[in-house]
């Protein structure tokens, strides 16, 4: 058709630098927050590192739930697979180089993502949710029974990672683990920003909004979702491996339903469908949990519950999503 040869003033009108500048700003914010955390809470680095690991889990969940619209309560299966794979690699096979452990965790997470994706995507809606719960219970039970490798309910201990790059040993205060975690988080964050802007990212957002339209364009909804599940698994696996490397133990709780459900709560709290939302939700939830449980060990769960109800009722887009909406309204009213 001849119409395609007319060149419209579109290409030059589009500012191409803006998204990269925004990503750079995102990386800078993470960096500044990381430095602030390091100096403000030097005694809590282990908690901060744990938060980073869970952030990776919540980012991974955001890919399938926030971007693709798949409801799942079994996402910790991917995180736990990464944690156990990295732990078993170190304890049983003597692979104690930390970056190799993370790579093994990512691969194991991707495989777990493939397996659970194939199972969970058989169903829709409620059936999908129930299948995801079944998946997490099966993973949990498999890890429990395979105690030769996993240590069963005692947990897998004796993980002794080598120094990072052969230079920075993992210390008692968790400084190395923290910096290692921040490095992984920034790397994953940048890769995911590229991913969600890519053609595949756009396709997945389309699938969440109308899968029938996507198939009428000739794209396979299922194949795309499984591909995203594999990517998501790799991200969660990195989180699991980070947890194994930093705490040097892996427990069955990493493969638990509770861990899955909490990840979903954090995502909803921060705002699904945005990488920043996933990060904000994790920090707020885990920090709140930490502070409130120390202040009132008896009623802290009640307070967490009240916070959640408040967010879901009054800020249904999550903390980050609502903040963005308010900002836009503010800027709009000034113009």
């Amino acid at each position: 058709m001849s119409a395609t040869e007319i060149s419209a003033p579109f290409e030059q009108a589009k500012p191409m630098r803006r998204p990269w500048q925004r990503d750079l700003a995102g990386v800078l914010i993470i960096g500044v927050a990381a430095v602030a955390g390091y100096f403000l809470f030097p005694d809590n680095l282990a908690l901060l590192t744990r938060i980073i690991a869970i952030m990776l889990l919540v980012l991974s969940l955001d890919l399938v739930t926030g971007y693709c619209g798949v409801a799942t309560l079994g996402h910790a299966a991917l995180f736990g697979a990464g944690a156990y794979a990295a732990g078993i690699a170190a304890v049983t096979f003597g692979i104690t180089e930390p970056l190799s452990m993370v790579a093994i965790g990512a691969i194991a997470g991707a495989v777990a993502g493939l397996v659970s994706g194939v199972v969970i995507l058989r169903g829709h809606g409620l059936a999908q949710l129930v299948l995801s719960i079944a998946v997490i219970h099966l993973f949990h039970e498999a890890a429990n029974k395979a105690s030769t490798y996993t240590g069963g309910s005692d947990g897998l201990s004796g993980i002794a990672p080598d120094p990072v790059f052969g230079l920075f040993a993992f210390d008692l205060w968790g400084r190395t683990a923290y910096v290692f975690g921040i490095g992984l988080l920034i790397l994953v964050f940048v890769l995911l920003r590229i991913l969600v802007r890519s053609p595949f990212g756009t396709l997945c957002r389309g699938i969440r909004q109308d899968p029938i339209r996507v198939s009428a364009m000739g794209a396979s909804v299922k194949a795309s979702l499984i591909k995203m599940y594999v990517i998501s698994g790799a991200v969660a696996g990195v989180g699991g491996a980070l947890n194994a490397v930093s705490t040097q133990v892996v427990g069955l709780d990493s493969l638990s339903f509770t861990n899955s459900a909490e990840a979903l709560v954090m995502l909803v709290l921060g705002g699904a469908g945005s990488l920043y939302g996933a990060l904000v939700g994790t920090i707020v939830f885990m920090w709140f949990e930490h502070v409130v449980s120390a202040a009132n060990p008896f009623h802290w769960l009640t307070i967490v519950g009240a916070l959640l109800i408040a967010v879901v009722l009054f800020a249904p887009k999550g903390l980050y999503g609502t903040a963005v909406t308010l900002m836009k309204r503010f800027i709009g009213s000034r113009q």
Binding site: A3, T4, E5, I6, S7, A8, P9, F10, E11, K14, M16, P19, I194, L195, R197, S198, P199, F200, T202, L203, M217, G218, A219, S224, K227, I231
Partner: peptide, 28 residues
């Protein structure tokens, strides 16, 4: 992108693909 078999790409953005932008602009 789907027609051209590029919708599965994990990196890049259609804003940086001049021929996609041109065709999209002319259709719109």
């Amino acid at each position: 992108l789907q027609r051209e078999g590029k919708s599965g790409r994990l990196a890049g953005n259609f804003h940086a693909m001049p021929q996609v932008m041109r065709e999209m602009g002319s259709i719109l």
